[in-house]
Amino acid sequence: MLKKLIEKSQIKSPWIVHYDCGSCNGCDIETLACLTPLYDVERFGVLNIGNPKHADVLLVTGTVNHRNKKVLKNIYDQMSDPKLIIAIGACGLSGGIFKEAYNVVGGVDKVIPVDVYVPGCPAKPEAIIDGVVEGLAKLGELQQQNKTDAIAS
């Protein structure tokens, strides 16, 4: 019972930490806009917790460069499982318009595994909400899979 409740809660209470990994602020303000009255992601239990140790979802915006890739990795390491990584915006997905710039490594997935990609430049708040919902769906599927794995073994 408790396990079921925990699994349900994991989907109902995604706390996010947002890291601006060298974005132009476009995606950042859209991510913040998600929290504001018009989009109000707290409806899904989302809290911008700001601390990787507490968070379940890491929202990354922007291109990865040589300096912030270490920061990104550090934040990723400090999050405890289960965790979701959502890359937001063209830069976060592939480097976008900056992918040829000399100090750009590329997308977020070059440094840490990404669960959901949210396209757009910048991604609209609706798209970011879709991204989080998609991520939670993935988490739900993983839970199912774990269960069937457990039964199988």
């Binding site: 409740l5 925990i6 994991q10 209470s13 706390w15 109000d40 409806r43 239990g45 379940d56 289960p82």
Partner: peptide, 21 residues
């Protein structure tokens, strides 16, 4: 001027935290 979370959100939060590694 927002809608806000479900009433039992604190319960979900605690349960979720409990389930973390």
């Amino acid at each position: 001027s927002r809608i806000g979370p479900p009433l039992l959100q604190p319960l979900y939060d605690i349960c979720k935290l409990w389930g973390k590694k």
